[in-house]
C-alpha cells in the first residue's frame, strides 16, 4: 500500500479528494468574475470603482466605438444618401489605419486568367521560344497546397495584370476623347498606338526589368542578350453553353486575347 505521491505535488493540487464513490458536479465558473479585486493579495488594497464613474468611462468608450462603427458602415455602404453626405470624410478617416475591401470575388468573380510571356534574342542567334514564368510555380502550387506557392504566383502574375490595368486606363482615357459613334476611336485607341504612353508606366518598366533578368539567365553564358520582347495573354474560361456544344474536348478555353509589346534592343 503506497501513500507516496506519484510525482512532486505542488501546493495548488492540495484539494481534498472526495470520499470514495462521491460524485461532484463540475466546477461552474462565472465568466463575469474577472475583476481585479479577486486577485489574491489585492483585496485589501483595491479601491472600488464607483458606479457613476464606471458608467461615465463606459459611455466615453462607447461613444468612440459607435462613432468608429458608424463611419465604417458609411465607408462600406454602396452609394446612398449617407455616403453622399459623409463619404469623403469616411474615406479620409478609413484610408490608412482602417482601409478595408470585402468584395472577395464579388459582385462578379474575376474569371479570366491573365498570363505574362516573354522571349529572348541572343546575339548571333535567333528568337527563342515563348516562356511563361508561372509554369513551374503552378506545378508546385498544385502539388503542395500547404505552402507559399499561391502567394508567389501573385508576384509574377502581377507583371501581366499590372500591364493589363495600365493599358486599360490609357485606352479608357483615349476613348473618351472621341464621340461614341466615331469608328476611328477603335483604331486610335487599339493597344499598339497606346504603347507610346505605356513606356512611362511603372508596370511597363517592371516587365522590362523582369524580362531582361530572365533572358540573361536563360541564354548561354557565352552569349549576350541582343533583344527581348513580351506579351500578355488573357484566357477566358469555357462558357456553360460551350460545354454543351462539346468545345471542352477541343480546347480548355473559350477565347484568348493576346497583346504583344514592342521588341527592345539591348544597348551596349
Amino acid at each position: 500500500m503506497s501513500d507516496e505521491p506519484v510525482g512532486e505535488r505542488p501546493d495548488e493540487d492540495a484539494v481534498s479528494p472526495p470520499k470514495p464513490g462521491e460524485q461532484l458536479e463540475p466546477k461552474v465558473v462565472d465568466p463575469t468574475s474577472n475583476v481585479a479585486s479577486a486577485e489574491p493579495g489585492d483585496a485589501k488594497e483595491a479601491k472600488p470603482l464607483r458606479r457613476p464613474l464606471a458608467v461615465v468611462l463606459t459611455l466615453m468608450a462607447m461613444a468612440v466605438f459607435v462613432t468608429h462603427l458608424g463611419i465604417t458602415l458609411v465607408y462600406l455602404s454602396p452609394a446612398n444618401l449617407l455616403k453622399k453626405e459623409g463619404g469623403q470624410f469616411a474615406d479620409r478617416y478609413m484610408k490608412v489605419l482602417f482601409y478595408q475591401n470585402w468584395h472577395l470575388f464579388s459582385p462578379e468573380p474575376g474569371i479570366s486568367t491573365t498570363k505574362f510571356a516573354f522571349r529572348c534574342y541572343p546575339e548571333g542567334g535567333e528568337w527563342g521560344q515563348w516562356h511563361d514564368p508561372l509554369v513551374s510555380l503552378h506545378e508546385d502550387f498544385y502539388k503542395h497546397r500547404v505552402g507559399a506557392y499561391g502567394k508567389l504566383i501573385y508576384v509574377y502574375r502581377d507583371l501581366a495584370i499590372g500591364l493589363k490595368q495600365a493599358l486599360g486606363r490609357h485606352q479608357r482615357t483615349c476613348l473618351e476623347r472621341y464621340p461614341e459613334d466615331d469608328p476611328q476611336r477603335y483604331l486610335e485607341c487599339a493597344p499598339s498606338p497606346m504603347m507610346v504612353q505605356m513606356v512611362d508606366e511603372p508596370s511597363f518598366e517592371l516587365a522590362m526589368r523582369f524580362t531582361r533578368t530572365a533572358c540573361s539567365a536563360l541564354i548561354d553564358p557565352d552569349q549576350q542578350l541582343a533583344a527581348y520582347t513580351f506579351k500578355t495573354l488573357e484566357f477566358f474560361p469555357l462558357k456553360y453553353s460551350e460545354r454543351e456544344e462539346g468545345v471542352a474536348a477541343e480546347r480548355p478555353w473559350s477565347k484568348v486575347v493576346e497583346i504583344p509589346y514592342p521588341i527592345f534592343e539591348v544597348e551596349r
Binding site: 462600406l76 502574375r157 480548355p252
Partner: peptide
C-alpha cells in the same frame, strides 16, 4: 466582412445564377 461580401455577391449575376464557382474553378490561380 461576411455581411459586405454577402451583400456584394447578391448583386453579382454569376453568384445569383449559381455559376460563380463554375468559372472561378477554371482559373489557374
Amino acid at each position: 466582412v461576411y455581411f459586405c461580401a454577402g451583400i456584394y455577391k447578391l448583386n453579382g449575376h454569376l453568384w445569383s445564377n449559381g455559376m460563380a464557382l463554375y468559372y472561378i474553378l477554371q482559373a489557374d490561380t
